[in-house]
Design a protein around this nucleic acid. Structure first.
Length: 423
RNA sequence: AGAGAGAUGGCAGAGCGGUCGAAUGCGGUAGUCUUGAAAACUAUUGACUGUUACAGGUCCGGGGGUUCGAAUCCCUCUCUCUCUGCCA
């Protein structure tokens, strides 16, 4: 979340930033937060002075007891009753105000970076880069959902039977190409300096709050209610929460990790042609990369991550474009997001395969993730990106590389697969 | 899953109702000595909040209670360890 002190000092910029995001009633929400904060501080100060008084009294009584002056001690005791009542009352007010402030602060999204275009919908996103040729497909080319059943490599019906919609089985060469993609992506990440992590795929509530899935988006996660654990929607959650509450030593920076995990998303309320086949699943595999950076380095790190993802797509020989998301389309916690989209030739549309974001200190503030500069603790910046999510990559490989004789496997994947064609 | 023990500063570990934000050791930082390093010695070394600055306040796993006063007593939750059971 944002820091209230920052809002206090930069009120106008904050309101302007929120408006760029089309955040409703920005000025009123900000004013409300500042007012609650002011009240909170007033109560805090009053409470502090009451506590200071009773601490002093208690010490005095202690001294008197030691000196054996029983009567004086008893007299002093009698005086403390009022202070006690007062502090209890103030303490309750303080708790009330603090939780009110938290509630408001949790509803305020991150401020967009200056380069973020204004806008409301995906149409307002700005295309900043494009690469590769859209292939011309042979007569009778099919979308991937037809290809996978024709070649019997991914089975949705079986998934329906055993689990439910959106939980497919990968079979034979389908399973092998998954494994190949995972290895390829992890190796590439390792080579780019991202230390490989295999994190848990369930997280507790505190972690959900840390990266911003909670308190708002619990409906997006599968929950194991008996233990109050959640299946992760992305490896970002465990990878970033590794450092929750930490004060990082400066020499340990930058921190760079990769992690492969299955990801689970309930995707409540999505259906239709655009979510057919591999386009949207409840369980899918993804390699995530994250960075934890000093504030002044975070935008260079973002570019570095963008370059990494570009490299992956180019090695896979997929046509892609990069969008800078507009204020209205950006995630709640992000300051700047680049989406990567791969062209899917048979569906004749762009599919989002990666989202690379700088959260600046928005997540770090919730996480209390800091480092020390010249003796002072300062919030770090967190970044993450998909590198990459498998299903749509697989969809476009299948669609773009299909021929009348079968589907060609991209060269870089062949050593991992052990075959060069699905036929 | 059952029984027992425990949770204290970066780490180890004392404290078990009053001046304890917390002994001591290790580690870290700075200095003295040294050509340099090591050793030794000296000093310093937690976080949060707050103030222009000082002051003040909070934090000894989390939450609640008893008390004038709690790291210390009570309740509760969570976690860890040991033994037994089960198990990839």
């Amino acid at each position: 979340m944002l820091q209230i002190a920052y809002i206090k000092d930069n009120k106008e910029a904050v309101v302007a930033g929120l408006e760029k995001r089309n955040f409703k009633d920005a000025a009123a929400v900000v004013d409300n937060a500042l007012e609650i904060d002011q009240n909170r501080r007033n109560v805090q100060q009053e409470l502090d002075s009451v506590l200071a008084q009773s601490n002093a009294m208690a010490k005095q009584i202690g001294g008197l007891m030691k000196a054996g002056k029983k009567e004086e001690a008893e007299a002093a005791k009698a005086e403390t009753g009022q202070l006690k009542a007062k502090s209890k009352e103030l303490d309750e007010q303080l708790k009330q105000l603090s939780s009110e402030l938290d509630e408001v602060m949790y509803t305020i999204p991150n401020l967009p970076h200056s380069s973020v275009p204004a806008g409301r919908t995906p149409e307002d996103n700005e295309e900043v880069f494009k690469h590769g040729e859209v292939p011309t497909l042979h007569e009778g080319a099919k979308p991937h959902w037809d290809l996978i059943s024709y070649y019997d490599i991914i089975d949705f019906d079986l998934g329906n039977k055993v689990t439910g919609a959106g939980f497919p089985f990968y079979k034979g060469k389908g399973a092998k190409i998954q494994r190949a993609l995972i290895n390829f992506f992890l190796n590439e990440a390792e080579a780019a300096g991202y230390g490989e992590i295999q994190p848990p795929i369930m997280i507790n509530e505190a972690s959900g709050y840390g990266t911003g899935q909670l308190p708002d988006k619990e409906g997006q996660m599968y929950e194991a209610t008996a233990d109050k654990l959640f299946l992760i929607p992305t490896a970002e959650v465990p990878l970033t929460n590794m450092y929750r509450g930490d004060i990082i030593k400066e020499e340990a920076l930058p921190i760079k990790h990769s992690g492969y995990t299955p990801c689970f998303r309930r995707e409540a309320g999505s259906w239709g042609a655009h979510v057919r086949g591999l386009n949207r699943l409840h369980q899918f595999d993804k390699i995530e990369i994250i960075q934890i950076r000093k504030p002044e380095e975070s935008y260079d790190a973002l570019e570095e991550m963008v370059a990494h993802v570009k490299g992956l797509l180019e090695k896979l020989e997929l046509p892609y474009r990069i969008l800078r998301l507009c204020g209205g389309d950006m995630g709640f916690t992000s300051a700047l997001t680049y989406d990567f989209e791969v062209y899917s030739a048979a569906q004749e549309r762009w599919l989002e395969v990666s989202s690379v974001s700088n959260f600046e200190n928005y997540q770090a503030n919730r996480l209390k993730l800091r480092y020390k500069v010249e003796g002072k603790t300062q919030l770090l910046h967190t970044l993450n990106g998909s590198a990459l999510a498998l299903p749509r990559i697989l969809a476009s490989i299948l669609e773009n590389n299909q021929t009348a004789e079968g589907i060609n496997i991209p060269k870089v994947l062949q050593p991992f697969c052990g075959f060069d064609k699905i036929s």
